[in-house]
Simulated assay, not measured.
Amino acid sequence: MSESINQLLADLHAERERTWAPEALKINIDQRRTLVEQADPARFVKVGDSLDAFTLAPVEGGTLELERLLANGPAVLVFFRFAGCPACNLAIPYYERNLQPALHERGVPLVAISPQVPERLKDIKERHALTLQVASDPGNALGRRLGILYAFDEASRQASLAKGPGIGEVTGTGTWELPQPTVLVIGQDRRVHFAEVSPDWLVRSEAQPIIEAVDALLDQDLRTSKRA
């Protein structure tokens, strides 16, 4: 049986049910439920959308532009919240194990993206010895264009502040906005060929459907090149 990210996240939630104080667990559950109930899929990036140029900031330094990402074929983008997010520390290593090898074999770059500033974001890459690329979306600029951002509700803000600095200080963005977990497969035509957005950050895309979307796009590109 192949590894499932959603089983890993279900196990995380089950552990919280056993170990968290009831009031803390309720705040977490209520925030995620509200995000699901208030989600407007019409605002989310979707298959068929065309992406304008964007620039990311890799944790190693420099810049990463859409044009360079697509230089040799399609690319896969995975949006996550921040380096210290427990769910992200399950999800991103899961993609390293279950998605990165298949994409690397196909020559397709995989980029994990968070608004957290690069000098803090690099922690997740170093902690898990990731070979996939990790990059910052400065100011949530790309996430905002894709319609995938959310803001902490008041109860979550107060809970965050009670434990220490607010999320804006943790990420270095100065805001309460984070991206909802999102996976995109982008073709060389700059169009979105696979898009999955999850308002609940304890639900994320499994690796196999992403690989299948990439393979379908590569097959399509091959047929097109043969006709040319």
Rank of each mutant, 00 (worst) to 15 (best):
E3W: 12
E3Y: 12
A10C: 10
R16H: 08
R18M: 01
T19R: 01
N28K: 10
N28Q: 12
I29E: 13
I29S: 09
R32N: 06
T34K: 10
L35E: 06
A39H: 05
D40S: 10
V45T: 09
P58E: 14
E65M: 15
E65L: 15
E65R: 15
L66R: 14
E67V: 15
G73A: 13
P74N: 12
A75R: 13
L77Q: 13
F80T: 07
A83F: 08
A91Q: 14
A91Y: 14
L99E: 13
Q100K: 10
L103Q: 08
G107Q: 00
G107K: 04
V108H: 09
P109S: 07
V111Y: 11
A112R: 07
I113C: 02
K122M: 03
R127D: 10
L132I: 05
L132D: 05
A135Y: 02
S136R: 00
D137S: 08
P138K: 06
P138D: 00
N140C: 10
I148M: 00
L149P: 03
Y150H: 07
E154M: 01
S156T: 13
A162K: 10
G164Q: 08
P165H: 01
V170W: 04
T173N: 03
T175H: 06
W176K: 08
P179K: 06
P181D: 06
V183H: 04
I186Y: 13
Q188H: 10
Q188D: 06
H193I: 01
H193A: 07
E206W: 08
E206M: 06
P209Y: 07
P209I: 01
P209S: 09
E212V: 03
E212I: 01
A213Q: 03
D219G: 02
D219E: 08
R227M: 00
